[in-house]
Every structure is written in C-alpha cells, then in structure tokens.
C-alpha cells in the first residue's frame, strides 16, 4: 500500500479519527465566535470584490439594457420600457381563434421549453453514467494516486477545445463516418443511418460526452467521505448490499449528486455552439436566440431573453437545493 501516513488521508476527506470533544467553556465560545466573524470577512472579501467588479457591474448593465430600446435607426437609446419583456411573452394571434397560433405560447417560451427538455435528458443520462464511475473511483480504487489518475483520464477529452471535439463528431457519426462504416461492415444495416448526426440524438450524445465529467467530481467527493466503518457495521448487522446502497450510500452521496445536477443544469441551459456544430442547427436553444440577436446588435431583446434564462436557471438551482441540502452536517 502506498497510503502516505496516518494523518495524511487525502482519500478519505473529513473522516479523520475522532478526537475527544474538547471541554467547552462559555468564555471560549464567545471568544472564538468573535474571532470567526472577522475571519469569515477575510475569507469572503477577495471573492466578493472580484464578483462585484466582474459580475455584478456587468450584470447590472445587462439589466439596464433590457429596459432600453432600439430605435428605427438601429441605435440603442436609454429608456425605461417593458417592450422587450412584452415581446418575450407575446404571440401574434394568441387570442384569435381563427389564427393557427391560437393559444400557442410565444416562440421564446417554446425555445426555453426545448432547452429545458434537452437539459433534463442530458442531466439524467449524465447522472446515470457518472454515478457508477464515481462509485468505482471512491469505493473500489483504494490508492489516492490511482483515484486521481483515473479521474484525470476522464478529464483529458476536456483539454481538447470543444470546438475541435464537436467538429470531430462528423467523421465519427456521419453517413461515411466510422460508426456507419462499422455497422455496414457487420451487416446490421443496409444503408448508412442518417439519424446518427444532425439530430436530437447526436446533440444529446455530444452534450453528454462533453459534460459528463462534471458530474463525476462532486459525486466522487461525497462518496469518498463515507466512513468505511459505517458500511462494515451495516454489513455485520446483516444488511444486504442493495439495502446498504439505498439506506446509507445513496443518501450520503446526494449532496454530490445535487452539485453534479447543478453543473449540468447551468451548462446545458447556457449551451449554444454544439447545437450548431453537431445538432446541425435543427434545434434552437435559448443561447442560439441570444447569439442571433447579438449578431445584429439587438442588445436590448438579447438582454431580456438572457435575464429570463437566468431566472429559469436560478429557479432550477433553488429547487435542486431545496430538495437536497448540500450544507447538511451529519
């Protein structure tokens, strides 16, 4: 075993040997609490300043733009109008029974819905694929160096620019691509399958391949912290493997699952390039609408769409966090 030394346990975060609880005196607690307050301020100050400079200020300008207007000269004019938001929800002929758009939601909302649906699909697939990998790394691979090495292997494709990787899907899945060649060769199909590329299938596949690694990290950390002694105790009490998994491992790994979900959620909701390169532009994601508007300088409507997207993402994160408390102390 090449485990370093007993008090250097990188593989088992937080499950260090129990130390006897120190005697707590009233004075000690008060003193420490005050100390902690100052200490917290210092800990969050650099990030907060950075966030204000590079996030909050630009974000405020986006919020301001969303109330501005483009005049008929294509110039953005300061204003306070809700027209961009009205346009967001507006469908021509919504209340007109004779129109074919009668009671149809606005195209922006439909685009948001498409994006949402795709995100959910990708999220579920990513979780299903990533969980066993994280489990394998945390529970089956014992040495830290191998855990890290095998995790890094999953990250290697990420170090090739995604622009390159998405272009590489074409020679893989195209009509004359490797997969079709293989299928023709073994004789399963008689002519190349078209749906492999430029379809919802290829888009989902490419997105899963791009982002699945984001799920592995957090789930791995949650699993790695599960104390082996709990599992052994359960086993000694005669619990069956699936019971142990359902009653102990799964609940304890939920924070990691939730964080992985948040990663995938925000990544796919904001995605745009892959939809063009691998999806063949056949599905419009919210990101594409924003790009299309920005490509002609329509910043106010682009801003309002972006803010609605952000709001949706925020609600999603909020729901995920309500379902799983990632700060739970057990």
């Amino acid at each position: 075993m090449d485990r370093p030394s007993p008090n250097f346990h990188p593989g088992l975060i937080g499950s260090a040997p129990q130390a006897p609880a120190p005697p707590k005196t009233g004075v000690g607690i008060i003193k420490r609490r005050r100390g902690t307050g100052v200490y917290v301020t210092w800990l969050v100050a650099p990030s907060t300043i950075w966030l204000i400079l590079f996030l909050i200020v630009p974000l405020l300008s986006i919020i301001v733009f969303s109330f501005w207007q483009i005049n008929d000269q294509n110039v953005m004019v300061p204003n306070f109008t809700l027209v961009n938001y009205a346009e967001y929800f507006h469908t021509e002929g919504f209340f007109d029974p004779s129109s074919d758009k009668f009671l149809t939601l606005s195209s922006n909302i439909l685009t948001l819905w498409t994006t949402l649906r795709l995100t959910m699909e990708v999220m579920v697939i990513c979780l299903l694929l990533a969980y066993p990998i994280a489990y394998f790394l945390a529970m089956q691979v014992k040495a830290f160096k191998w855990q890290l090495a095998l995790f890094l292997m999953c990250m290697v494709p990420f170090w090739t620019s995604y622009l390159i990787r998405t272009v590489a899907w074409v020679p893989m899945l195209g009509r004359r691509g490797l997969v079709n060649k293989f299928l023709l060769w073994i004789g399963i199909v008689e002519k190349p399958l078209g749906f492999l590329l430029y379809s919802e299938f290829s888009l989902t596949l490419a997105l899963v391949q791009l982002y699945v690694v984001l799920c592995i990290g957090p789930i791995f950390f949650s699993l790695a912290k599960i104390d082996n002694s709990i599992l052994e105790a359960a086993r000694d009490m005669g619990a069956k493997p699936y019971q142990i998994f359902r009653e102990i491992i799964l609940p304890l790994s939920l924070p990691g699952v939730a964080i992985g979900m948040i990663f995938i959620w925000v990544m796919i909701m904001g995605e745009f390039a892959t939809a063009g390169l691998v999806g063949g532009g056949k599905m419009a994601l919210v990101g594409n609408s924003i790009i299309d508007l920005m490509g002609t300088g329509q910043y106010p409507p682009a801003s309002s769409i972006a803010l609605m997207l952000m709001l949706t993402m925020m609600i999603g994160v909020f729901i995920i966090l309500k379902l799983v408390d990632i700060r739970k102390q057990l």
Partner: peptide, 18 residues
C-alpha cells in the same frame, strides 16, 4: 441585408429551427 423587421425575423427563424 439587415431588414427593418430584423428582430421579428430572428424570432421566427428560431421557430423554424425548433
């Protein structure tokens, strides 16, 4: 060209894609 109804066009183009 960029048309006067550009933002309407972009919106409807999105519908086509979806």
């Amino acid at each position: 060209s960029v048309m006067d109804e550009n933002s309407y066009l972009v919106k409807r183009w999105g519908e086509f894609k979806n």
